[in-house]
Amino acid sequence: MIVSIYDMDRTLTRRGTWIPWLQFWLRTQAPWRVVMVPLMVVPGVAYATRLIDRGKLKAWGHRLLMGPTVSRRRVEAAAKVFAREMVANEVFPAARTALAQARAAGHRLVLATASNAYYVRAIGADLGITDIIASESRWRGDVLHPWLDDDNCYGAAKALQVAGWLGRNGLADAEVRFFSDHLSDLPSFELAEERGGEAVAVNPSPALRAEATRRGWQIVDWGVPAKSLFERA
């Protein structure tokens, strides 16, 4: 079996999803929390100066703009609406076509993304993808808390989580094709190659395009991603 694993933000979607999720939450669930937006300057500067990592930046965004606790029912209901908006408006048509072709060829499709799992699962469901590897947030029963329950699913941590997922699902020997737009996913690209699969640079950042060209990886352009202040390569 071939397992086709896709990064999400700016690979399948035109832009990242974390800030749009927070904006959506403010608009539909907690408009009064807009007064907390200026406080995001502090964790934003801390992240920009490398005093905190992405996981902590996400946690502070959640704490300030979503609140310290949110019920599962409320999160899941909001995520379904958000997912419909994102899939309708932000997924590249060429990405939809590529997913359909991989599915028709019998590939097992997986989303592997640093985005928060509670809304990634809803986006995956709208795309017909049920296998999700993402940043898991901390749940206590049916209550969502701001902090991540494990490492942010990014860079080397993503590759480790992908390898673990393959092992748990009896796919340790499967051929892996990995698709991403960003050089931070180099460990996952290399994991795919080590397993006899293929690394595919999609809508690549300049650094990834140069690396993919050097290594002879396939490069495809499904669309033009929006710029992000949070990407460094």
Results as ranks from 00 to 15, higher is better:
residue 199 A to T: 01
residue 186 L to C: 10
residue 94 A to S: 00
residue 180 S to E: 07
residue 21 W to F: 10
residue 117 A to M: 01
residue 73 R to K: 14
residue 6 Y to W: 15
residue 188 S to E: 08
residue 116 N to D: 05
residue 173 D to H: 00
residue 189 F to W: 11
residue 109 L to T: 07
residue 156 A to K: 04
residue 170 G to F: 11
residue 166 L to M: 11
residue 144 L to E: 04
residue 75 V to F: 05
residue 107 H to Q: 10
residue 107 H to R: 08
residue 214 R to G: 03
residue 197 G to K: 01
residue 211 E to T: 06
residue 186 L to Q: 13
residue 184 S to I: 13
residue 19 I to E: 11
residue 16 G to N: 12
residue 231 E to P: 14
residue 4 S to N: 02
residue 73 R to S: 14
residue 122 A to F: 11
residue 167 G to N: 00
residue 206 P to F: 10
residue 79 A to H: 05
residue 78 A to Y: 10
residue 170 G to D: 07
residue 81 V to Q: 08
residue 140 R to S: 14
residue 97 T to N: 00
residue 27 R to A: 15
residue 70 V to N: 09
residue 216 G to I: 03
residue 126 D to Y: 14
residue 43 P to D: 02
residue 109 L to S: 02
residue 207 A to K: 10
residue 33 R to M: 10
residue 84 R to Y: 14
residue 224 V to E: 10
residue 54 R to T: 07
residue 214 R to Y: 03
residue 72 R to C: 13
residue 176 V to G: 06
residue 123 I to H: 11
residue 194 E to K: 15
residue 160 L to P: 01
residue 154 Y to S: 02
residue 81 V to P: 09
residue 49 T to M: 14
residue 110 V to D: 12
residue 53 D to A: 06
residue 27 R to Q: 15
residue 34 V to I: 05
residue 2 I to N: 12
residue 94 A to E: 01
residue 173 D to C: 00
residue 104 A to N: 06
residue 158 K to P: 02
residue 163 A to V: 09
residue 213 T to Y: 15
residue 59 A to K: 08
residue 90 E to N: 09
residue 4 S to E: 05
residue 160 L to N: 12
residue 113 T to H: 00
residue 81 V to A: 13
residue 124 G to F: 07
residue 96 R to V: 09
residue 114 A to Q: 09
residue 190 E to G: 13
residue 210 A to F: 00
residue 106 G to C: 02
residue 222 W to S: 00
residue 144 L to G: 02
residue 140 R to N: 14
residue 172 A to F: 04
residue 5 I to G: 13
residue 117 A to K: 04
residue 148 L to K: 05
residue 46 A to T: 07
residue 107 H to D: 15
